[in-house]
């Protein structure tokens, strides 16, 4: 059963990473324009380098 001492922390850490990532996306306004964002991916602007 000693495997549990690895698995449980791993599963908890993975959950925490998911949660933190989600909170980051919410905080940085990434859900303000879902429709526009799904189309912006088709644009070839800023394909070579990120928007300054």
């Amino acid at each position: 059963m000693s495997i549990l001492s690895y698995l449980i922390p791993i599963s908890l850490t993975m959950g925490a990473i998911g949660l933190v990532a989600f909170i980051y996306t919410v905080r940085s306004n990434q859900y303000d324009d879902p429709e526009g964002d799904s189309r912006r991916i088709l644009s070839d602007e800023w394909d070579d380098h990120p928007k300054p």
């Binding site: 959950g15 925490a16 998911g18 949660l19 989600f22 909170i23 919410v26 905080r27 859900y31």
Partner: peptide
């Protein structure tokens, strides 16, 4: 946003 973050916390915690 506040509700959404609370929902996410409850969701992730309940999954674990």
């Amino acid at each position: 946003r506040d509700l959404l973050i609370r929902l996410a916390v409850a969701g992730f915690a309940s999954m674990n």
